[in-house]
Each structure stands twice: as C-alpha cells, then as structure tokens.
Amino acid sequence: MKDAWTPHHDGAVGDLWTGPAGAARLEVAEPVAVARALAWAAERALAVRVVRGVRPPAPRTLQIDVGALAGLVALDEISRVAHLRGGTTWAEAEALVASRGLTLGPVPGCVAETPIMASFAAGERRRPSPAFGHLTDGVLALRAALPKGLLTRSAVAPRRATGPDLARCVVGTGATLGLAVDVHLQVWDRPESRVAAAVRFPGWDAAHDGAVVALRQGLRPAWWCARRRGREVELLAELWGDAGDADAVGRFVDATGGREAPAADAQAWIDARADAADTRWSAQVAAPRGGLAAAARARRGIEAWDLRPAGATLYAPRSGDAADPPDAWAALADRLAEHLRGEDV
C-alpha cells in the first residue's frame, strides 16, 4: 500500500506523502504536529481522516497517522483518571490501565482498534453501558488541536460551569472543529467477577419494561442488549462486581421480572461484542418506548443496546449506510466550522 504514496517535504508540516487526486498522508508524534496538520489541511480545503498505519489514498483527504501519538501520559490512581494520548487505540488504552488493575469499562470489538482521537471525531456511540456510559463520556479534560493550528487547554475536573462545554466541539464533528490530541478519562477498578445473565420475555415491551425496572433498582450492567429469540425477546447482560457477590444474576433476573435463560446465550453475545472482528454494527434509530417492536420488524437482526426509560437505540449490522440527510443542525455545524477557519460566511 505504501506504493500508492510518494514522499514529499513541506515547509509547514515537514515530511509527508502525497497520493493521487490531492490525497496526502502525514505521521504525527506530538499534539502540535496535529495542529499544524489541521491548519495545513484547512488551507488546502482537504478533508481529514485519522488513521493508524498506512491506508489507501482518498481524494482530497489528508490522512493523519497517529500511531506515534499513542500511550499513557500519566495515571492518577487516586482519582482513577488516565491521561491518554489521542492516537492510542481503545484496546491499547485498556491494556495500559489494566496493567495497573484498572479498566475503562467494556471495550466493544467494533472500536477496539480505533484511535481515541478518531472515536471522538466520529462521536462514537457504540458502548452505551449503563454502568460506564459511552466510551467518549467520562472525559475530565480534553486538549484539542484546532484548524488554525493552535492547541486548546483545559483544567482537569469532573464537571464545570465555565460556559458551554466547548470540548464537545470535537465530539461527532469529524475533524472540522478540531481533534482531541489527549484526553483525561475516568477509569475504574477492574471487577473481581464478571457474570453473564440472560432473561426472556414474551415481547419487546416486556423486555424493555424489565430493563427499566432493573435500572430503577440501581442495577447497572456493564453492557447489555435486548434482541429477538424465536417468539420471545431476550435481555442479555454482563454484570461486573465483587467476587463475593454470588447472587448478582439472581438479583438481576428478579429485578427484570423475566424468565431466566441459559447464561450461555449471554456469554456468546458478550464474546461477540468483545471480538475485535465484530465491526459490523451501526446505530440505526432511537426508538421510543413502545416502538421497539415496530422498529425491530423493519430491520432483521436488530439489537437494542441503549435501553433507558424513554426508549432504546437500535443497532443493526452495517449495510452500506447512507449518510444522514443534512438538516438545519448540520448546516449550523458547517457554518460553525467555517467561522472557526475564519472564513466569511
């Protein structure tokens, strides 16, 4: 694949590679290099894609290879806060904190090899864990590179009231408003035990109700989903906790009010979710409570991952997703990026 790229040197960003149709590739090792790369791309009106390793060229796109911008900067074991470089993949990050007896929470296989920076840019939403939230939640601080070549700063704290949460500008916005060059993330003690639980219900609404009751009783699985199984709907969960808690599954089953099913069902699902090859999933639609059955009928193989009182987010195997149609907010986001680049709007 390296054959597709031609070495080049640029006064602003140093060594890089160029490819056909305005493609470019740059390896960065420092936050400031990301900032320079964004500015360079902005001047040339190139799209930006964050990658690890060498990927095929894409027209008018700058690939920023962040493989050298990876690693753990510091680990605050008192506060359970990991300071990670933006190029670190989730699998690497989990391994780094695991060696100190800590965890980021479950890491889905579909994102394990994605750099943290890219996940933030994509607005990663494929780990809606009741216990740990999304992978891009739990941010205590985020430093970003801006399209004008500058770096932001941020104090490290769990919450703040110093205006809008400006760091959100780099979550879900591609690289148009900046990229997260390093983040402070909440980490947790590794659980002493992980057990799988499976509960069956006569339909979607009953399964959803059972999940909500469990949440309201304070039970928060590390991850879970509801999916059809034959004529029933099963709720599958992984419960993290203390080694001495022998009745975790029983409490969960009792709370949901469903019928206990073989734990192997849940374990198989958990193994699949954690499998690095399992990269097929994409969020489909947020279904309101009561609308799960209809949404599930519309698409085979659907799983409801983000179960909450108001509804759930349904995920399905990816099938050449069409881009969401532009709406008023997308247009505003475009204008925001243009303003950030200093363009007349």
Binding site: D165, L332, A333, L336
Partner: peptide, 13 residues
C-alpha cells in the same frame, strides 16, 4: 440519546 453527526448542541447551549 439519539445524536447523529455533529456536536451535541445541548451541551453547547
């Protein structure tokens, strides 16, 4: 709980 592409505008307002 149903964010598409773009920032979480809620947290910006």
């Amino acid at each position: 709980d149903a964010l598409g592409p773009g920032p979480d505008w809620n947290q910006l307002f």
